[in-house]
Design a protein around this nucleic acid. Sequence first.
DNA 1: GCAAAAGTGTTACGAGTACACCCATGT
DNA 2: ACATGGGTGTACTCGTAACACTTTTGC
Lengths: 239, 239
Amino acid sequence: MTIKLIGMDYEPMGVATDLVILTVRAGSLQVLLIRRGIPPYQGRWALPGGFVRDQEDLESAARRELAEETGLASERIHLEQVATYGEPKRDPRGRVISVAYLALVPDLPAPVAGTDAASASWVPAGEVLADPKRLAFDHHRVLSDGVERARAKLEYSPLATAFCAGEFTISELRGIYEAVWGQTIDPRNFHRKVTKAEGFVVPVGTTTTRDGGRPAQLFHRGEAKTLHPPLTRGLAAGG
Amino acid sequence: MTIKLIGMDYEPMGVATDLVILTVRAGSLQVLLIRRGIPPYQGRWALPGGFVRDQEDLESAARRELAEETGLASERIHLEQVATYGEPKRDPRGRVISVAYLALVPDLPAPVAGTDAASASWVPAGEVLADPKRLAFDHHRVLSDGVERARAKLEYSPLATAFCAGEFTISELRGIYEAVWGQTIDPRNFHRKVTKAEGFVVPVGTTTTRDGGRPAQLFHRGEAKTLHPPLTRGLAAGG
DNA sequence: GCAAAAGTGTTACGAGTACACCCATGT
DNA sequence: ACATGGGTGTACTCGTAACACTTTTGC
């Protein structure tokens, strides 16, 4: 099928968005997967996603999917475009272009709202990435790109706070880095770097003992969009 | 128009690729623009691009456009995806999704082959970016994103060599950085950093006097995909 | 008191900056 | 000889890594 458009021909294609929704739960980086109820790849795990509607913006479509799968409708959830996948045979149903988005959400009190729990669940990202055949379509590649983006951005942006609740302690923030990077970080140097980086975290003024030990100050995220200096992934283990 | 696809409806859309083709000429970062011969935006400047064909991969489509506009058909030309733009009203002809690619090419001996010179030309990127109304569609935004990507990647990848001919001197490489970043760099510290960074440049063994003064060693690009340590954009002016 | 986690001080090291200085060519 | 750019040596500074040490809670 070819469509004429003022002297120019083009092949119409399906346009979808797929979501890499990440969170940190129980000290590990986890991704939200759904089990497909219909062909193709029926019964296999896949990233949440769906077709973009007429007159709907790409990011709006991604945000709609996110709300449908997690119940998180807030504009404050971090959502960013990662890449677009358009290999001709990637979807056996026909030509479908997929725009992948990365969403970072805090550990949700209610596991997954707005959808039936049987078909959606959190799975450790490392476990999924270890098996290239686990996911439907080219979703292994999409997940891999999304996770790598998240890892890279933690270095030079204050993005880690997107995984945290409104108020958090420095060691909770450190737990995010340790889960995403898969390595331990010296708590003392981390504390100093993070609190000194301009606009990264701002103290709330209250403390909590929920992590045990001496009470820790609570912080909320600052206004900074980039980190100076960056947190290097080589920030080694210690103490 | 809605298409049924195994119980799922989707709106078919046009899918295009647009190219941000950058080079460094006469000490400035320049972008290849074409003057549109047909509506919409007839007579306005725009990024080269076109619809993706049936059974054609996104990157293949971008590479085809690149070859058509520049005559550069080599697989060795650096080409990477930047972002996808899909605002519903971005193209007045109808719903068109555009996948933007960034291409970095050396300063071509023949200006622009494979196309009529009247309609395509190199324009300093800074000049275009200074006027948000210069380009058709949302191409100002696309160009802006592409240039920012190039600037950022010079820091942590050996990408600058993509702007160079097969063999180049360190000061020619430095000229790339100065043009893209718009700042001067200390030639002595730059020389040391670049030649010491593992896999960035490898000496050919011959020298040239084409830059004047003492003969300079010639290098070609190395195998490294990332730079350790990175070249900071704060690499200050000097001497 | 003891364990546990928060938070501070200090030292050693390595990378970045600035710049003095020498080298090899063209004119 | 002199100008021009290539290339090396080196001192200073600053961010990081490592880790000893003090603080404040729960049990």
